[in-house]
Design a protein around this nucleic acid. Structure first.
Lengths: 193, 193
DNA sequence: ACCGTATGCCAACAACTGTTGACATGCAAT
DNA sequence: ATTGCATGTCAACAGTTGTTGGCATACGGT
């Protein structure tokens, strides 16, 4: 609110800011919110801890900046309805493998109320919005989105956090073939079956 | 291993020990491993922090004692194969609602390596064992157990940790009717469908 | 009644945490 | 060249953490 995003002169400290953010994502993803100390992050970024405070205000502020991200959901209305589940799982797996931001958020959401709030926002807003595109009953739609989230987050939790061996070892394509039908039914099916 | 369970005289401090354990479970479940401080737990149990150390050795030791628990899986071989999924979800939901130990373990598993290891043990051993009862191919069986774990832990994560509104508000019976078919397919179905 | 021991409390330690302010340094504009 | 500001370093703070040892007390067996 104070300093908005003008076409402001590229600051000389942008490299440092980026290094801090990269180190922060790594540490938050690997250790969770409380174990990831500002000192360790600063050491990784090879700068002084006080710089973190100057540029991000506080640890909470740093996390807020580091956990900023977008699901980048594709346009689901352009996907054949019968392949929705498949597209979703594949997209999420690719997204998780390529960006540790989500792992950081997932780990932190277990213990940090702010992170949990953000996680709620992401899945309630972005996912529900994508699902709403082809549903009318709002209560049922929210329920569908929640169920989809439960399976997708469970996949992430077992594969990236707890690291259950079978979930880590199974190749992505086979995970897709198992999980896609689940999402498909959550999205378009009916409960009694 | 050191002091096994003799019919040892019931110690006079058993009440205190139990109070500590109860407070520990509450705090670990509510705050996670690192935010649950020994001082806070001791205050809840209305005793001195040093008592926790005397009786449980360390914070890790306390957590190990507090997170000790059993899935108490029913005998799946006595269940009609077509109703396996339903029985499993219902059992897990009841187990989670009635005992916050699992929530504590779930929260801690995100940041504490020891807790994650224990979680792996529980689901790899107990769940895999239960699934193995009616499967022969061991690699596929492990995969089935992993998939079941992913959906069940995702359910717990979204409902008890992140508290996604739709997952919290949906009555247990409806959750069962949605999720049971998923587990059913993971347990007895084939990937391509 | 006496004594050993289990139980409990108190005070303190050392390490670590997020955070702050003072001070140096170097870039860029006047 | 000189001024102003952004960038970076250093040291320290106040609070919290897990953990420890000493000391009182009260129970239970003799």
């Amino acid at each position: 609110m104070t300093a908005s995003a003008q076409p402001t002169h590229p600051r000389r400290s942008d490299a440092t800011r980026a290094a801090i953010l990269r180190a922060a994502r790594e540490r938050f993803a690997a250790d969770g919110y409380e174990r990831a100390t500002i000192r360790a992050i600063a050491a990784d970024a090879q700068i002084d801890p006080s710089m973190v405070m100057r540029y991000y205000g506080s640890k909470e502020g740093l996390f807020a900046a580091a956990a900023e991200f977008d699901l980048r959901l594709p346009d689901l209305s352009a996907v054949p309805p019968a392949r929705l589940g498949e597209v979703l799982v594949r997209h999420f797996l690719a997204r998780w493998d390529g960006d540790e931001t989500l792992v950081a958020l997932l780990r932190a959401a277990s213990t940090n109320p702010g992170a949990a709030e953000r996680m709620r926002g992401i899945f309630a807003d972005q996912l529900t919005a994508a699902v709403t595109a082809f549903g009318s009953d709002s209560a049922l739609t929210a329920r569908r989105a929640g169920l989809v989230a439960s399976q997708l987050l469970g996949l992430a939790f077992t594969r990236y956090i707890v690291r259950l061996p079978p979930m880590v070892d199974t190749p992505p394509e086979e995970l897709v073939s198992w999980i896609a039908p689940t999402l498909q039914r959550y999205l378009t099916g009916l409960p009694e079956s």
